[in-house]
């Protein structure tokens, strides 16, 4: 893997408009049953503009950032050898339907450990006003070729 990737900041992703039905679909898929995830009235009564996405929904927006990383020509990343090692979400506020979200991915660390390469990518996700919503941090492990 290209060690010079460390510190690289990728351009902002195309804004992602969070749809109410997408939130509901994702909520069903992760067995999230709170009315806040499904019922706009319940969400509004709790002070949200619309239905609230489950915490791991941010992965959908992170994915757009990771796509830029994996498509870059000089990374030395072989996608067929990549395993998802760790994931973390650090949240300022929940994602809600109607949010227009942009992701900026930064490669924060590249390490070699026992023949494997580990890349840590932090994807900062902001709303249309430019305010931070959540940062998604992935550790991807690229297995060695022996």
């Amino acid at each position: 893997m290209n060690k010079e990737l460390e510190g690289r900041v990728f351009p902002p992703t195309t804004p992602y408009l969070v749809g109410r039905e997408k939130v509901r679909e994702f909520a069903r898929a992760v067995f999230a049953q709170s009315p806040l995830n499904h019922d706009p009235e319940a969400a509004r009564a709790a002070g949200f503009a619309d239905v609230v996405a489950p915490p791991t929904f941010a992965v959908v927006i992170q994915e757009a950032g990771l796509a830029l990383l994996l498509a870059a020509p000089d990374t030395g990343i072989d996608f067929s050898r990549i395993v998802h090692g760790e994931q973390k979400f650090t949240s300022t506020r929940p994602i809600v339907a109607g949010d227009e979200l942009t992701a900026i991915l930064t490669v924060t660390s590249i390490k070699s450990l026992g023949g494997n390469d580990m890349i840590t990518a932090e994807t900062a996700i902001s709303d249309a006003a430019g305010d931070h919503v959540v940062t998604a941090t992935s550790v991807l492990v690229m297995r060695g070729t022996e």
């Binding site: 395993v83 994931q87 973390k88 650090t90």
Partner: peptide
Amino acid sequence: VIDWMGDRGELVEYGVRF
């Protein structure tokens, strides 16, 4: 955890290793 917490609080961080 989300169900247990209800409206009594909010999640600030969630991380796992696979």
